[in-house]
Amino acid sequence: MKTIKFFAIIFFTMVFTRVQGQTCCSGGTPLTGNLGIQTIEPGSWYFNFSYDYNFLDALYSGTTLLDDDTRDRVTQSLLLQAIYPISEKFSINGLFTYVGQQRTVFSPLGNTEVTNAQGVGDMVVLAQYTLLSDVKRSITIAAGPKIPFGKFDATDPELGLVLNPDLQPGTGSWDGIIGASYNQYHFLKPNLTFSSYVSYRTTTKAKRFEGDNDYKFGNEFMVSAGLSNQFLIKRTAIGASAHIRYRNAVPDQISGLKVPGTGGNWFILIPGVYFEPNDTWTFSVSGEIPLYNNLNGTQLTTTYRLNAGIAIKLFRN
């Protein structure tokens, strides 16, 4: 077991040393943060349908929160994650999204300009391999592409101009994602679970303006770790969790030039609660509270984020 722990540490740290990192206004398509790598028993289907609300009105310059009320952003997403085990070790994990973006600018003259874009977002398909799964712990690794299903040429309805990349439902690029999760059950005490997750997304270029230039979202690294405690009330399992997530994104690029005000480092607290009335259903609510931001240039970032989900496990027998 010590060997497995050792390799888990090495894996995490190797990924860390290559830190480059999503982007700007984290109003972009929410993907990796919602990609839970779950270990599913063979013969069952797992579906998680969730709603994600990301509110951004915190304007940061580096680590400094600026006193600004000139704009805000809201990203709302509907996400469907499906996991199907092909064998005891292998499973397929898919994430499908529908994304709504909204930008509001409060003019100094008191006018309000609202811009919206919505549509099917990008899709992620991961091949998962469970290295270990027993009553004490589980380790799963995963890799796969992010497929540019989402619209990347959404236009402003008034002027018909192509909107900025971070307002698009999709990213327009094929990306690669690798990730791993490690869970330790009965951690310190019988109902406590330690869980951690690491992922890295490497991005490619997307063509814009009839191919006149290209846009590349920054590579993204993410790691999270935390605890969840579960107890039973009349056969219903109720749990509370708290995780810390670190996220690093390198700046986006336009035709090879770094895009101002994109990329940085985020340190986030993710509290959550869930309850499982039976083996089939799980209801969960979680939030994101920024703890520390160190961002490139000046950019709008998340003030808070909420996620509510319903997960269902369907057993073949």
């Binding site: 740290t13 990192g21 790691v223 770094k258 940085g264 490139n296």
Partner: peptide, 18 residues
């Protein structure tokens, strides 16, 4: 400790380039 240490180092790597 290792995770924190590498996080700290990586923060320094991608600072404000303005």
């Amino acid at each position: 400790f290792i995770i924190f240490a590498f996080w700290f180092v990586s923060c320094g790597q991608s600072g404000d380039e303005d």
